[in-house]
Design a protein around this nucleic acid. Structure first.
Lengths: 198, 198
DNA sequence: GCTGTACCGTACCGTACGGTACTCTGTCAA
DNA sequence: TTGACAGAGTACCGTACGGTACGGTACAGC
C-alpha cells in the first residue's frame, strides 16, 4: 500500500464522514487530486475502492492492550472500565458511524463484503479482545461464568446498549466524555456484580 | 388510508425485505400492479412512498400490554421476560432488519426523516413502554434505581446486546426461538439482580 | 535526447432511474 | 347513452453517475 494510495483512501474516509456512502467516484478524484482512471486502475471499481477504504481504516485501529496477569478484582474492573470507555468513544465517533452506516447499507443490497469486514473488526474483534481477559479473570478466581461468549454478550450490552443504533439512526444527541465515563463505570460495576466472584 | 394504498405499501414492504432500499419506483408499480403516475400522485415522490411505508408498518405494530398493578417480583420478572422475547423476535425479523437498514442509510444521506421515524418506533417506543413498568416496580418496592432512563438503557443492553447490529451488518446466523427464550430469561434475571430490591 | 511509465484532467458513453405526459380502459352517476 | 374520472400501462425526458478513452505532463532509465 503506497503512500499515495493511503492519501486517496483517507480522502474517501473524509468524504464518507461528510456525505455518507453516496459519494461519487468523481468526488473522490476531486478530493484526492487524482484522476478517475487512476482510481479504477488501482481499485478496480467503486466497490473495490470502498472495500480498500474500510480495510485501511480497520488496519489503523489498534485496540488497547489488556492486562491478563496479576489480576485483582480492582485491576480487572479498571481494565473493563477503560476498555468500555475506549470502545464507546470509538463507536460514537463520526468515522465509526459513517463506516457502520455504509456497511449496513451494503449488507442490505448484498453486493459487497463491507458488512462482513465491519463485523469482523467491530463486534467480533471486541469479543476476541475481551475473551482472554475474561478467561484470565476466571482462572484467577475473580469471575464466574460458564460460556465466555455469554459473558462477552452481556458486557457488550451493558456498555453499548442502544447507543450505537441510536447514533446510526441519526439521533443528534451523543454521549460526551463525562457521560461515557459514567456509562463505562456503571457497566463495569454491573458486570462485576453479575459475574464477579466473592 | 384506503385499502388499495395499503396494498401498495405492503408491496413496498415485501420489496424492501427482498432487495433492500434499492428498489426502483418502477419495481413497486410492477409489484403492486399500479402505474407509476398513481404512485407519484398518492405519495408525492419516492421518499414520500418510503416514509408512508414505514409509518404504515409502524402503525401495524402493537406492543404487548404490560401489567402495572398487583406486581410481585415474579410477575415483574415474567413481564420483563415476555417483553424481551417479543422485542428480540421482532428485532431479528426480516422486516425489522430491512426497515432499520433503510432508516440507517437515509440517516446517513440525511434527505428524509426515516431515521427519526424508526427511532421513535424503535428504541424510544421501547423505553416509553418500559418506563411505567419500572416506575410501578419501584413504587411496589420491587425495584431500586435513581434514573428510570438508566434502568431502561441497562435493560435494552441486556436484552439486545450486539444482536441487532450483527444482524444489520449481515451476519447469517440469527437466534432462533429457543435461543431467544434463553437470552430473554437471562436478561430478565440479570436485570432483577442489578435493580431488584431484597 | 529518446522511450516507457505513471499519472492528472477531462471529455465522453451507456445506463439506470426519478419523474412526467399521454393513451386506453373500466366504472359510475346523471 | 354518455360524459367524467380514476387509474393501468407505457413511452419519454433529464440527469446523475459508473466506467472508459485519450491528450498532456513529469520523470526515470538508457
Amino acid at each position: 500500500m503506497s503512500e499515495r494510495k493511503q492519501e486517496v483512501l483517507d480522502a474517501v474516509l473524509k468524504l464518507m464522514v461528510a456525505e455518507g456512502d453516496g459519494f461519487s467516484v468523481a468526488a473522490v478524484a476531486r478530493a484526492a487530486s487524482c484522476s478517475k482512471e487512476t482510481l479504477y486502475k488501482w481499485f478496480g471499481d467503486r466497490d473495490g475502492l470502498l472495500t480498500a477504504t474500510v480495510r485501511w481504516q480497520a488496519s489503523k485501529v489498534r485496540m488497547p492492550k489488556l492486562p491478563q496477569d496479576k489480576l485483582t478484582r480492582d485491576s480487572l474492573e479498571a481494565a473493563l472500565n477503560g476498555f468500555a470507555e475506549n470502545w464507546l468513544t470509538v463507536l460514537t465517533g463520526d468515522l465509526s458511524i459513517a463506516l457502520n452506516r455504509a456497511a449496513v447499507s451494503h449488507a442490505g443490497s448484498g453486493k459487497s463484503r463491507l458488512g462482513a469486514i465491519v463485523l469482523t473488526n467491530g463486534p467480533f474483534a471486541m469479543r476476541q479482545r475481551l475473551a482472554p481477559l475474561f478467561e484470565a479473570g476466571r482462572a484467577a478466581g475473580l469471575l464466574d461464568f460458564d460460556e465466555v461468549d455469554t459473558a462477552c454478550r452481556t458486557f457488550f450490552g451493558l456498555v453499548v446498549a442502544d447507543t450505537q443504533i441510536r447514533a446510526l439512526l441519526g439521533e443528534d444527541r451523543r454521549p460526551d466524555d463525562t457521560e461515557i465515563r459514567t456509562i463505562s463505570a456503571t457497566a463495569a460495576a454491573h458486570f462485576m456484580r453479575l459475574y464477579g466472584r466473592g
